[in-house]
Design a protein around this nucleic acid. Structure first.
Lengths: 218, 218
DNA sequence: GGCTCATGTAAAGACCATTCACATGAGCTG
DNA sequence: CAGCTCATGTGAATGGTCTTTACATGAGCC
């Protein structure tokens, strides 16, 4: 992270902030993390950044556009995190795939503010095509991984990889949403979300005829 | 549904409304359906019911408590819908289980307001134990169905039914959340959510060694 | 008939979103 | 460097929401 100017929040500044857009995005992230996407207010973000309540309107049309931007960054970081975990399928597809699932849950847990903005803030995807594309790119990592995994199967018995990717995504998202965050009120579990997802994935893949589990079983 | 008095919303009434709590719950449901859980305001519900903005406080501590009550009703109806679909496993467990999954998605689609209040409004489950219990009862339907399904397997090769139920729940919830509502902005799919869920379930169950699909294949 | 208490009202203070006219000064242009 | 321009920030105003408090009403009960 870098601020071109005035990195301290209480350091005096001139009439112009110099990096307000960035400061607002960070403020939004903190506030969403602290009080949920609903508890986040435009005015408070402005206060946090040390500017008047009207200043943010120079950078974002309204509150929703700010959240959209947070979500956009979230998808970008999400994509990066997933891609890093997948690591092009090294050392082998199954091991990497397992890592990918864990990265999904890790993101939801360590970046709940981004995750909320991305999936729970009620942003209409159709409006912001950039946002949709960022989401698609994140999904593409999963899609690509699924394809590589399928490619290890003998031709002829290969299930449709798009459907597989959607299944894995839905399951991961479901687990993350229902059990994945330590925050406020989620349900207790007899196992960790990671174990739950790993088991689901193994069973699912076995159902598709994939040879079992990651080689060294961790 | 029944109103003890004054069923029309514009019919004149005396100083006392007579059924305000009920009217507020219905207003909340309509407003959440129309503008999402975030767009719902306490004042607007009061206006819709034809009372002053302060009146709702006689029935609900605050906005969140109203939403909690909506969520509570949602869970009750959800439980009823799932139980009806499961129908005690008739005519056979697989057929009924498939119906159960479809009922899950149907509820999310036809009652998006309830679904939002239940899963996306950010209500802390710990606070309202009644709410948690209602949610648990709804899950219990799925849990019970899973158990019956497992019981069709030869003893010895029976997977843990709690884990299975969690897997199915997570997948259903993931599909419903990501693709299941026609509302605002969700993603497009090459198949219906119902088909997606049915396929996921079949593959998953096959991975567990269950004999294939519902007998007459629909 | 008269009491009491749940239920509803009015008014007020505090906060938020949004807009508009206006102020500032960073960066370009000559 | 002088001057201009325009992106960026301010202040003030409008209108909405949340929530509390003192007060009004009338339904149910004796």
């Amino acid at each position: 992270m870098s601020w071109s100017k005035d990195s301290g929040r209480s350091g005096q500044r001139g009439y112009h902030h110099g990096n307000l857009k960035e400061a607002l995005l960070r403020a939004a992230l903190e506030l969403i993390a602290k009080k949920g996407p609903a508890g986040f207010t435009f005015a408070e973000a402005a206060r946090w950044a040390g500017v008047s309540p009207a200043a943010p309107y120079r950078h974002f049309r309204d509150r929703d556009e700010l959240i959209s931007n947070v979500a956009l960054r979230g998808f970008q970081q999400f994509e990066a995190a997933l891609a890093k975990a997948w690591d092009d399928g090294r050392p082998d597809a199954m091991t990497a795939f397992d890592r990918l699932g864990k990265a999904y849950l890790a993101f939801a847990r360590t970046e709940p503010a981004y995750y909320s903005a991305m999936f729970e803030a009620g942003i209409p995807l159709d409006v912001n095509s950039e946002l949709r594309e960022a989401g698609d790119r994140a999904f593409a990592v999963l899609r690509n991984a699924t394809e590589k995994l399928v490619a290890t199967l003998p031709a002829g018995s290969r299930p449709p990889s798009l459907m597989m990717a959607l299944h894995i995504w839905a399951t991961s998202h479901g687990i993350a949403s229902l059990f994945g965050r330590g925050d406020a009120g989620r349900r207790a579990l007899p196992m960790t979300p990671e174990e739950l997802l790993e088991a689901a994935t193994l069973i699912y893949l076995r159902g598709l005829g994939l040879p079992d589990g990651p080689p060294p079983k961790r």
